[in-house]
Design a protein around this nucleic acid. Sequence first.
DNA 1: CCTACCGATCGGTAGG
DNA 2: CCTACCGATCGGTAGG
Lengths: 204, 204
Amino acid sequence: MVDMSPRKSAVEARGTRDRIVARGMALASVDGLEGLTIGRLAADLGMSKAGVLGHFGTKQALQLAALRTASEVFTRTVWRPVEHLEPGLTRLRALFGTWADYLETERDSFPGGCLFTTASIEFDARGGPVRDFVARLFTAWRRRLAGEVRTAVAHGDLPADTDPEQVAFEVFGVFFALNQEIHLFGAADAVARTRRALDRVLAG
Amino acid sequence: MVDMSPRKSAVEARGTRDRIVARGMALASVDGLEGLTIGRLAADLGMSKAGVLGHFGTKQALQLAALRTASEVFTRTVWRPVEHLEPGLTRLRALFGTWADYLETERDSFPGGCLFTTASIEFDARGGPVRDFVARLFTAWRRRLAGEVRTAVAHGDLPADTDPEQVAFEVFGVFFALNQEIHLFGAADAVARTRRALDRVLAG
DNA sequence: CCTACCGATCGGTAGG
DNA sequence: CCTACCGATCGGTAGG
């Protein structure tokens, strides 16, 4: 571990780094991970550019740090609260609820909308570590969601001929639509529409 | 009409403008409408920056021109081919086909994926004319799609209690998911998944 | 963690 | 449609 400053302790440096990442997530949510510039981030935080960049080395490392932390927020606010629930349809529906809440209420962390959706659109036609990381996140969550569906089928909560991957594909589509509804249209009835859409996906 | 060049006729200038817009659409599809820079566009076309910008005046006008032309491509390749078909479920299903084809095969025009989806994500947390134009496009297409659903209901092709706006919301979600499937994942079975998803949306 | 700096590129303009 | 240029900002580095 390299001490980044002669003036701040390791604990203080860690706190500064966390503040940078948190602000970076919010800025990237609005302007994209490329639109997230070191200069604006520094000005926002009252720091020098070198002070910001010193914690990461490169812009790409900062982008990856923002995505990694955002994925921890997602895990904490969407997956974790339903982990203790009874496996099957109960947990699946609860998951849909925390997911919709995440898109609706995480305005402080992601004022410009879901950072993963933004990053997916922004990097899907490029190569490199950021694109790979985004693809891995979506793949992992798709797989996990399909697993929840499979469990619900095994419990007899959903028809035996349900295709878990197909359901997962459709559920992601619904949440993409919800994200647009909230941020492009500012629609008030977005969550009601989403709930109906998800019910239909499950009804098969 | 102001002649932009002492050396090119108005017809030639128009052709140049068209080439700029076509290349701009492709670049914006990959790097976004902000990532579309005058300098790269000029270098790509073997022109000077001033030569490019002279046709539009500002970058924002170029962005709007790219979106407007892209919307004409969309109308020509998605809506127009089904206009002559029998109104109702037949036309609706044909529309889904041209739409999926547009996402799958318009790789020359939009190598980085659907420009409207990109623009929606990129501008949804901002103000200004570009955001407004994108929102108007989506609103118009949502309304038109809902109208097709309403027609299908009126023809007895879909249940009387079908909610056309709800169906339109879900259909857009499916196409967002298809766009990701193609460009982030490069998935081969994306169209089959999409067809199944759309069937389920219509089955209600 | 800062100041001071680097070359490259940004959107845009003047003038022809 | 071009050359030549503007101030601002980009990511990043040197050195402390």
